[in-house]
Amino acid sequence: MTHSLSLVGAIKETGFSCTRCGTCCKESEPGSNLVMVGPEEISRIIESSGLSFEDIVEPYPDRIQEGGKDYTFGWVLRRKNDQCMFLERNRCIIYEVRPWICRTYPFMLDNSGLSVHPCEGIRTVNHTEDAQEMALNLEKRLEYEQDQDDKILKILSSHSIPAGKPVVIDAEGIKEYHG
């Protein structure tokens, strides 16, 4: 996948440089620091940290409850004391295997283009360094998220959501959760 010059240009023009304040990893308003993760990202974190699946993630908190069914879509990194469990002294302790959402913050790319989330690192420099790498990571993230969505849609079209127990639907299937 080749990144477009307009995307690289938009990223450069934003003037972003991470200040390492850790604010993006802390909850400033309800749900502001939810980090959605897919199965591959979870596996990398498990391998790197030695922690278990249950230690690392919890179901996305917005649940759908209808007709005896109780479900949600996807997983989020666990938080403790209103911050990401992997934030220590404003540093990410899983930096090398951090999820796509963290790798590309404060930028997000979707079908309507580039979005920039509020962050104190924006406009702190003339141009974003490594804009080409950020563009590539944004495109990889978008591709990954679209692939996850496609897999979930395929699962939903071929399986029924069980009633009577809470489940999480992710790109690997429908999983019972005992939180």
Score class of each variant (00 low, 15 high):
Glu129Val: 11
Arg20Pro: 00
Cys18Arg: 05
Pro30Cys: 10
Ser160Thr: 14
Glu29Ser: 15
Ser17Ile: 07
Ile155Pro: 12
Leu142Arg: 14
Leu156Met: 13
Arg20Glu: 12
Met36Leu: 13
Ser43Gly: 06
Met108Ser: 14
Pro59Val: 07
Glu139His: 06
Leu156His: 04
Gly173Tyr: 01
Glu13Thr: 13
Asp170Asn: 13
Asp150Gly: 11
Pro59Ala: 11
Arg103Asn: 12
Val35Ser: 09
Arg78Gln: 09
Gly68Asp: 07
Gln148Lys: 08
Cys102Ser: 04
Glu88Gly: 03
Asp62Glu: 13
Tyr71Leu: 05
Ile122Tyr: 01
Tyr105Thr: 10
Glu41Tyr: 01
Asp110His: 03
Val37Cys: 04
Leu109Thr: 07
Thr23Lys: 15
Asp70Tyr: 05
Ser52Met: 02
Cys25Ser: 06
Ile56Met: 00
Val167Met: 06
Thr124Ala: 04
Ser4Gly: 05
Glu47Gln: 11
Met1Asp: 03
Glu143Trp: 04
Lys12Asn: 08
Tyr144Trp: 05
Val168Lys: 06
Val97Cys: 08
Ser49Val: 09
Glu47Met: 07
Asp150Leu: 14
Pro99Gly: 02
Leu142Val: 04
Met134Val: 14
Leu77Asp: 02
Gly67Leu: 08
Glu120Arg: 13
Arg123Ala: 15
Phe16His: 09
Pro162Asp: 05
Pro162Ala: 11
Ile122Trp: 01
Asp70Val: 13
Ile64Arg: 11
Gly9Glu: 07
Asn126Val: 14
Met85Phe: 07
Ser49Lys: 06
Leu114His: 07
Glu88Ile: 11
Ile169Val: 15
Pro30Ser: 10
Cys102His: 01
Glu143Ile: 15
Asp82Ser: 15
Glu139Phe: 01
Ser6Trp: 00
Met36Thr: 08
Gln83Leu: 09
Pro39Phe: 04
His117Arg: 12
Thr19Ile: 15
Ala171His: 03
Glu40Pro: 01
Leu138His: 05
Cys21Met: 00
Thr2Leu: 10
Gln146Thr: 08
Gln83His: 12
Glu143Asn: 14
